[in-house]
Amino acid sequence: MRRLRDKLIDGILNSISGTLLNGPSGGKRSPDNVNISFLKCEGESLTIELSLKGVYVSSGSACTRRALQPSHVLTAIGRRFEEAHGSILMKVTRYHTDEDVDYVLKAIPAAVDRLRKIYGSMGG
């Protein structure tokens, strides 16, 4: 499980710019947990975009919470509002395979790319 988790984390961080791993890497990280912030990409939109491709994730975005506050856990570890607002949480399980991770590693860059096009030139 840890190997798939790291494959997913490394695959995302290496292929997409403006990404941040939330929490520690390696042995100090829960073996099933992948939590990454995507700058210039809003988290709720990303969860919906991915769900349309059959990838179900959750987000620390303010928009996905009834309270309209970003994840208090992410802010507690020092993430800024926009970093928490663009985060997604994924879990790997013993039932996932390399093929599943490969599929997700294709789906995420395409989804982030589309949402960053909607973001466009805002903020310079």
Binding site: K40, E42, E44, S45, I48, S61, C63, I118, Y119, G120, S121, M122
Partner: peptide
């Protein structure tokens, strides 16, 4: 241009 959720877009 939007940095926002599906309803915002």
């Amino acid at each position: 241009e939007s940095y926002g959720c599906a309803a915002n877009i």
